[in-house]
Write a protein that binds this DNA or RNA. Structure first.
Lengths: 106, 106
DNA sequence: ATTTAGTACTTGACAAAACCAAGTACTAGA
DNA sequence: TCTAGTACTTGGTTTTGTCAAGTACTAAAT
């Protein structure tokens, strides 16, 4: 998969996923991987960055299957940024796809 | 516009544009700008890179309206890479958009 | 009891691609 | 002669993803 296409989109995927339920990092890695090929070393830094920018709040919970889990919860400003990024992505991908259609390439 | 979404896509746009006609850099800057906000310092390095990778051949032609123009011509391997990148983009954007649809966000 | 596999998170060095700003240089028209 | 428009180049910076390695916990197999 083209690495470059992912830039910025991974953030959006995570924001959308966290809108429904709080999740912990490892869980997000698994979910995001179903959509785009990605590894832990990519997701965790995004979670840290977006937490620093206060789009997420975190709390921990113990697990009976392994080490303690750190959960991420979308804040109000996180919801706003999600809306913004989603809109940007839609406009962007639509304008590219429209260009491709007009260019009549296949 | 979100800078990150452009990564990799600008190459694709240029490849598609050059499939139809040879063009010079400044012309490509103007055309690409109609689709995504972009500036010269972004386009010229892409042209140089793709020329080094022999996806383009170049030749120059004088102009009566300014300095000499460097034209870019898509090679056979350039066409192949265009096909490949186009396919990758379609698959990528479709999988993201499908996820968005399923997530029922708006 | 110890090893192994699966779960869970962190970090550091690196690479790719876009940005901005500035510089060079040519032509045409005021 | 100056200015605006055309045309290309380069250098430093930022952002974001990759890979690899490391830490550490639990449960099941040896």
């Amino acid at each position: 998969m083209n690495t470059q296409y992912k830039k910025g989109v991974l953030e959006l995927l995570i924001l959308i996923m966290l809108e429904k339920n709080d999740m912990y990092g490892y869980e997000l890695v698994a979910l995001v991987s179903k959509i785009v090929n990605v590894n832990e070393g990519t997701i965790y830094p995004i979670l840290k960055r977006l937490t620093n920018e206060s789009y997420f709040e975190t709390y921990t919970k113990e697990s009976s299957e392994g080490p303690i889990r750190k959960y991420y919860h979308l804040t109000a400003s996180g919801k706003l940024i999600k809306d913004k990024k989603l809109k940007e992505w839609k406009e962007f991908s639509e304008s590219i796809n429209e260009f491709i259609r007009k260019s009549d390439v296949n």
